[in-house]
Simulated assay, not measured.
Amino acid sequence: MAIRLIIEGTVQGVGFRHALATEATALGLDGWVCNRRDGTVEACLRGPQDQVEALAAWSRHGPPGARVTGLTRTVADDGEIAGNGFHIAATR
């Protein structure tokens, strides 16, 4: 299963990307997370449905200090998630 998340709110400058990457790695997911120039955080995740759903649920609140006000979820193309493991990508 592969999904793309766009997370809105106070999600930059609060450790959201690093915390999400830590959660994703603990769940054994592949993919990436990045800040976007519009102030949101974007993540593409791939893995077993239960683990992907767990990270999507975590993303609705994020780490302490984050204030998530919106979450958009769409199907991601597996081709967008190259390689294995989870990493923090450059700003988009």
Rank of each mutant, 00 (worst) to 15 (best):
M1N: 03
M1K: 07
M1P: 08
A2H: 11
R4N: 11
L5R: 02
I6M: 11
E8N: 09
G9Y: 00
T10N: 08
Q12N: 08
Q12V: 02
Q12R: 05
Q12D: 06
G13Y: 06
G13I: 06
G15S: 09
G15H: 03
F16R: 00
R17S: 10
R17M: 10
A19N: 11
L20C: 14
T22E: 14
A24C: 14
T25Q: 13
L27D: 02
L27F: 09
G28I: 11
G28V: 11
L29F: 08
D30M: 03
D30Y: 01
W32G: 02
V33C: 09
C34Q: 12
N35C: 08
N35A: 07
R36W: 00
R37D: 12
D38I: 05
D38R: 01
G39T: 09
T40K: 05
T40Q: 09
V41Y: 06
A43S: 13
A43M: 07
A43H: 05
C44R: 15
R46P: 00
G47K: 00
D50K: 12
D50I: 06
Q51T: 11
V52R: 06
V52G: 05
E53C: 06
A54R: 15
L55T: 01
A57E: 14
W58M: 10
S59M: 04
S59R: 00
S59G: 10
R60G: 12
P63D: 09
P63M: 09
P63Q: 10
P64Y: 10
G65R: 05
G65Q: 08
G65H: 06
A66R: 02
A66G: 07
A66H: 01
R67I: 12
R67P: 00
T69C: 06
G70P: 03
L71P: 02
T72V: 14
R73S: 11
T74Q: 13
V75S: 13
V75Q: 12
A76L: 11
D77M: 04
D77T: 06
D77G: 06
D78F: 06
G79S: 15
E80M: 15
A82M: 06
G83W: 08
N84H: 14
N84Q: 14
N84P: 01
I88C: 09
A89W: 03
A89D: 15
R92Y: 07
R92P: 15
